[in-house]
Design a protein around this nucleic acid. Structure first.
Lengths: 191, 191
DNA sequence: CGTCTTGATGTCAGGGACTGACATCGCCTA
DNA sequence: TAGGCGATGTCAGTCCCTGACATCAAGACG
């Protein structure tokens, strides 16, 4: 239990997910998480802003990848296509990690507070998408709609990927969601 | 300060919004809210599950209206059209209340926890929309996409309505958002 | 080799959200 | 008019989270 064991943050994350899985989020105290990681409750709060955040440190990375992908898209690509491509790139980060994603998502789905935090993170991604689109010249209205719509589809695709037992990757589920939207939009226009 | 003053719940809501506006959400304690309403902290928690919830009791009503509107839509209407119509009906509930909506939204936007809660409420509406669509025969995938997309557009429209200084109602902003989506989808298909 | 700086960690005290258990009050009904 | 009963009050306690200050290990530097 020496003071300077490496990777304190990672140890806290692992301990937290383990405990949340074992006995549930609200029956786990921060003192317990810290203890399992060989640390103190106070130290937990130096690494994470609050108890929920311990499951969401990865979202900053997604954020960066998403913004980068939008910036690199061809200048003449339409907004929704740019969004779709960027989200597929993000989706590819999850390949090979479906079982971890399931574990984490199960913990999140089992608790309202964690669900709240996840939605906030997704909304943050939507805002970043919006800003990235406008930075490349997309008008305000379309950028906002494309960003919000894209994240909505991402959520839908992520859920179906988690639930599915197939060999398709998250990226493919994302592509399918966008295809589905096109059909709906066309059907609605034709009405 | 008699015990049985009427409308305890409403008094708590008013006191809370006033205090949040005056001094901010996290500098307001529940004891203060309760005191201004002539009640006790413990009673606050009998009316609201937590501190955030005091600003969101109206969302249950939106939920009902939304589900009702979907159920009443013509059987042959395409999903996204049903969603648009239902959201416009919800939008009409807000006419005449833009100034209250602004006050409340300002308080929410000023605080991360309240933003979280709002997102959760919207996600709940999306889920309800999804279920209502499937109840009338829409297939699972399209129902989910239409519901998520619809709520995304609602958010976008609500924001622009709050910000706008025009005479257009929320319903009209919603209609505009759906029109915008159609354009985007067509442009993306044509790519 | 010893000291100093620095960042991560520990310790302590305390406020505020939230809960469970139990008491009290006022309206309603038999 | 005595209960029944729902809404409120009181009290004690747990846990989340924070600020202030002390301590420790590692590298910098003389």
């Amino acid at each position: 239990m020496a003071r300077w064991e490496p990777n304190a943050r990672g140890r806290l994350e692992d301990a937290a997910l383990d405990l949340f899985t074992e006995r549930g989020y609200d029956k786990t105290t921060i003192a317990e998480i810290a203890q399992r990681a060989g640390l103190t409750e106070r130290t937990f709060f130096r690494h994470f802003a609050d108890k929920r955040e311990v499951l969401f440190s990865g979202s900053a990375h997604l954020h960066d990848v998403l913004v980068g992908a939008v910036a690199e898209a061809p200048a003449d690509a339409p907004p929704l296509t740019v969004v779709a491509t960027a989200l597929e790139r993000v989706g590819s980060l999850f390949e090979e990690r479906r079982s971890y994603a399931r574990r984490r998502q199960a913990a999140i789905n089992a608790n309202g507070e964690l669900l709240e935090r996840e939605l906030v993170k997704l909304a943050g991604l939507a805002e970043a998408l919006d800003a990235a689109l406008r930075a490349r010249g997309t008008a305000e209205g379309p950028a906002s709609v494309a960003a919000e719509t894209g994240i909505a589809l991402f959520r839908s695709a992520f859920t179906s990927w988690i639930a599915a037992d197939d060999t398709a990757g998250l990226s493919e589920h994302i592509r399918a969601a966008f295809t589905s939207l096109h059909s709906l939009a066309v059907a609605s226009s034709a009405k």
